[in-house]
């Protein structure tokens, strides 16, 4: 008998008393009434608490803001689907690498790149969480992981307050990365310190009218 058959059989035996299957009551908050301004304010509050750098700007200022955030970088990588206009003001001398599944940068390449710029799929203000889903504007998971600085663009229209509001907007079968601040650890005396293996700098650019 295969392990699978045997384990399944053990489970059925263990459940021979036919325990009741409770109906799950989703009485927790599933919708919110926050205005766009309140959502932005809450998201900023959470992200700052996580030690992320946050800019809230009109979409027209996106390029200037991103360029300012990249001022210390000598190279950066972007996913192939990223809005070109966002990169218009990055100095020409800053090396740009465009990454896609078809033409992926190697891990060694990525390790030599200072920063990454991506868009994002949806954000949850209550927990300060930005969700990337690997689509063309966000790219392969590796690009937002290996470089030490992540500049992440969040259009205000993609912010919701609650996690239950975010899930219907997401396809969980895409490779997802939920980001709530720069990498951190609480492993020493349960005190949180920011900056371990993931990007140590997280710059969030919230586009208030996009």
């Amino acid at each position: 008998m295969s392990a699978r058959e045997e384990i399944m059989s053990r489970i059925r035996t263990a459940l021979s008393d036919a325990p009741a299957v409770p109906e799950v009551q989703r009485t927790y908050r599933r919708t919110s009434e926050m205005s766009r301004e309140q959502l932005i304010e809450q998201l900023v509050d959470r992200l700052v608490d996580y030690k992320a750098n946050v800019d809230v700007v009109p979409a027209a200022d996106a390029a200037a803001t991103i360029a300012a955030r990249l001022s210390a970088a000598t190279s950066y990588v972007v996913p192939a689907g990223l809005d070109e206009a966002w990169l218009a003001e990055v100095p020409a001398g800053t090396r740009r690498v465009v990454d896609s599944a078809e033409q992926p940068a190697s891990v060694a390449d990525l390790d030599a790149i200072d920063a990454v710029v991506t868009a994002s799929a949806v954000s949850v203000s209550e927990s300060g969480t930005i969700i990337l889903d690997g689509s063309a504007t966000q790219g392969r998971r590796a690009i937002s992981l290996v470089p030490d600085q992540h500049v992440c663009v969040v259009p205000a229209s993609t912010i919701v307050q609650l996690l239950p509001e975010a899930l219907p907007r997401m396809d969980v079968t895409r490779p997802q990365t939920w980001i709530s601040g720069p990498s951190a650890t609480s492993d020493i005396e349960l005190e949180r310190v920011e900056g371990v293996h993931g990007p140590r700098i997280l710059d969030v650019v919230i586009l208030e009218d996009a």
């Binding site: 490779p175 997802q176 709530s180 720069p182």
Partner: peptide, 29 residues
Amino acid sequence: FMQLLPRSSTGERMNPYTSLWTGVTEGDG
């Protein structure tokens, strides 16, 4: 569960990173 777990474990509103993967995604991971 993603509301219950981080708040109960590290006492954070959300943990810094959560990864989800579904089998194999071509060209990613």
